[in-house]
Computed example of a mutant assay.
Amino acid sequence: MPEAMNWGLSWPYFLTAIVIGYLFGSIPFGVLLTRMGGGPDLRSIGSGNIGATNVLRTGNKKLAALTLVGDMLKGTVAVLVGFYLIGGKNAALLAGLGAFLGHLFPVWLGFKGGKGVATYLGILIGLKWPIAVTFAAIWLSIAYLSRYSSLAALVGSLFVPFLLWFWAGERQMAEMIAILTVLLWFMHRENIARLLQGREGKIGQKEG
């Protein structure tokens, strides 16, 4: 991301960035795409999650891929809108936070959303793409070896704040992403319990 514009963080900018980010993040691509594709209510199958991993459990790989792309792009677009249209780096960070919260707690679905992995990646793409590539590489490696999407996301997200702070020298960004990482782990609390019990569903595993 280019060097940020220098602006004083005021309440109008703060609220605008958060709200716009939230609106982008709250678009439930998984639910919309499966509904348009004639599939079941995504919230009634598998984990009940609205993300790409659960869409894959319907057996429709194309819709799962589209959901993944949509959930990523809404995070990226929110960050770029925050940076270029609202007020630079600070606004980009706030818009990213808003997008993540929107995905986790969308008002349109009674504040019951997804777990945020794809949106987390999309936010990283908008903020610092080399870190996003590193996160994706870690995710893919662990997912390939274990076939556990949740484990891959949990491990990969642990590295991101440290990479931002010590490798990229982005202290403020690292602090914000650390908040997102804590939220991501919180949303995966049931997955963590199932992983420990050996009951976690694997990638591509259908319901029933």
Rank of each mutant, 00 (worst) to 15 (best):
M1F: 09
M1Q: 12
P2W: 15
E3D: 07
M5Y: 11
M5S: 02
W7N: 00
G8I: 08
G8K: 00
G8R: 00
G8T: 12
G8C: 03
L9Y: 14
A17F: 01
I18R: 00
I18G: 08
G21F: 08
G21D: 03
Y22I: 01
S26I: 01
P28W: 07
P28Q: 06
F29N: 12
F29Y: 14
G30C: 08
L32S: 07
T34I: 10
R35S: 07
R35C: 04
R35F: 10
G38Q: 09
G38E: 10
P40T: 11
R43V: 11
I45S: 03
G46H: 10
S47R: 08
N49Y: 15
I50L: 05
G51T: 13
G51Y: 03
A52R: 15
N54I: 14
V55K: 13
G59C: 12
K61I: 13
K61C: 04
K62E: 04
A65W: 14
L66P: 11
L66N: 12
L68E: 00
G70E: 14
D71R: 02
D71N: 07
M72L: 14
G75S: 07
T76W: 12
T76L: 07
V77D: 06
A78W: 00
V81Y: 06
V81C: 00
Y84K: 01
I86K: 10
G88N: 08
L93C: 01
L94E: 01
L94T: 14
G96E: 08
G98Q: 02
G102T: 02
L104D: 11
L104E: 11
L104R: 05
F105K: 01
P106C: 05
V107D: 01
L109V: 04
K112T: 08
G114Q: 06
G114P: 04
V117F: 12
A118Q: 06
G122T: 15
I123H: 03
I125G: 05
G126R: 09
G126D: 10
G126T: 06
P130S: 15
P130G: 15
I131A: 14
I131E: 10
V133K: 01
T134V: 12
T134G: 13
T134H: 05
F135K: 01
A137N: 08
I138S: 10
I138A: 11
W139M: 14
L140G: 00
L140E: 06
Y144W: 13
S146D: 11
S150M: 03
L151N: 03
A153E: 11
A153I: 04
L154M: 09
F159V: 15
F159S: 15
F159G: 15
V160D: 02
V160E: 02
F162W: 10
L164C: 05
W165V: 04
A168K: 01
E170L: 11
R171L: 11
Q172V: 15
Q172L: 14
A174M: 09
M176G: 06
I177M: 13
A178K: 02
I179H: 03
L180H: 05
L180K: 05
T181F: 00
V182Q: 02
L184P: 00
N191W: 03
N191L: 01
A193E: 09
L195R: 05
L196M: 10
L196N: 06
L196D: 06
Q197I: 00
E200V: 02
G201W: 13
K202N: 10
I203T: 08
I203Y: 15
Q205V: 02
Q205M: 05
K206M: 11
